[in-house]
């Protein structure tokens, strides 16, 4: 059965929120507080960017299904 990531609104909402949060809007104009050598705003952007890429990879593997997949992967199988 076919499936695709954009048919899952909650997943797409999470992707959109992560993408939005990568830009450090919450830290505009704040004094750069350094934690473990990096400014907090940078930690925040790194965290959300990592979350975005993990979500994207997970969405591709979890929600991208196709009825042709079995036939594709088994050249000798039924079309």
């Amino acid at each position: 059965m076919s499936d695709e990531p954009r048919r899952h609104p909650l997943f797409m909402l999470l992707v959109a929120l992560c993408a939005l949060a990568t830009a450090p809007f919450l830290f505009i104009g704040s004094r750069p507080i350094v934690v473990l050598g990096l400014p907090v705003w940078l930690w925040s952007s790194i965290g959300f960017t990592v979350a975005l890429s993990l979500l994207t990879a997970w969405g591709i593997l979890r929600y991208w299904r196709d009825e042709t997949e079995a036939a594709d992967d088994d050249p000798g199988g039924a079309a």
């Binding site: 695709e4 993408a19 960017t49 975005l52």
Partner: peptide, 26 residues
């Protein structure tokens, strides 16, 4: 350091495929 945004938008390219690639492939 703000040009770290380039990491974000390079991830974003792959996220962009979520919008149309599955059906396009089919």
């Amino acid at each position: 350091v703000a040009y770290y945004m380039s990491v974000t938008f390079m991830v974003g390219i792959v996220s962009g495929y979520l919008l149309f690639a599955p059906r396009l492939y089919r």
